[in-house]
Design a protein around this nucleic acid. Structure first.
Lengths: 144, 144
DNA sequence: CATAAATTTGCAACAATGTTGCAAATAAAA
DNA sequence: TTTTATTTGCAACATTGTTGCAAATTTATG
């Protein structure tokens, strides 16, 4: 994981690579992503340690990160929106998630299973697939 | 598809089987589900032909149908919630969707691909799967 | 390092979406 | 037909997401 300072430096590079100003909000939000194992939703960012950020700022920051391919959304069956950090293969114009998502029914956490590939889906004739999203619900390692 | 009257009768049976009163709202909403090929969202129900139903009634009706296993939700990456009719295998206490969902990036429609099975997912050790949701985005038959 | 230019933030105001309690209306049971 | 149970619609509210704009912060420039 690295020291606090190393993480801050890594975040700085990430933001500069994406041609974004290095600001307190962006740094804090990325820190939270790196610290937490699972996917985050909007509410998680409002209770950030110390200073609280305006809801609007958080919405805009998350949207910016989505645009730049730094984070991705995870599909849900409710109105909540969950976000997770992208791996290095993702970029602004070529944004793929080749992993599946797992939502634990016990603890409620959603995590990216990076090692588990999305299986090939055989669609009926006439359909062209662009992206495939897989969300598995069940009981996770920790809750078993 | 059958005549209007046959559909109405089928809807009546479906509701009675689920131990629900046969009301105008429920009938109209089920009619809309049966007429439309794809998944529906809340807004689609508000502009129902003729009489308009209260938003609250629609929310409650959809929730009731979910509880009874008449419809199911489809995961999305935004805040919208999409619903589709369940097939006969679904019931109140045993609710599976063994098909995948396809969202067309052209026309915006979401449809259930009933013939396309969900492939088996090989999870890492320690994870127990309960349900698997697959949503494929791309271009559908009609838009190609 | 100081200043100018560009970007980001926070506030206010609004829009859209979802929820709850309760009385009136409707459907089912007697 | 009358009684009982269920459903509906209204009002009021809670939550979530959006837009314009001025103040604050960050980056670029001399």
């Amino acid at each position: 994981m690295g020291t606090k300072q190393q993480i801050t430096e890594r975040i700085g590079s990430l933001l500069r690579e994406s041609k974004l100003s290095v600001t307190e909000t962006r740094t804090k939000i990325l820190e939270l992503f790196m610290k937490s194992s699972g996917a985050l939703e909007h509410a998680d960012f409002e209770k950030l340690t110390g200073k609280t950020f305006d809801r609007v700022t958080i919405y805009r920051t998350l949207q910016t990160f989505l645009d730049k391919g730094i984070i991705h959304k995870i599909p849900t069956t409710d109105t909540s929106v969950r976000y997770a950090l992208c791996k290095s293969e993702c970029s602004e114009h070529d944004h793929h998630d080749h992993h599946i998502h797992f939502k634990c029914e016990e603890c409620g956490n959603t995590i990216c299973l990076d090692e588990t590939d999305v299986p090939p889906i055989h669609l009926p004739k006439g359909y062209a697939a662009h992206t495939v999203e897989v969300v598995v619900s069940g009981v996770c390692k920790s809750c078993k």
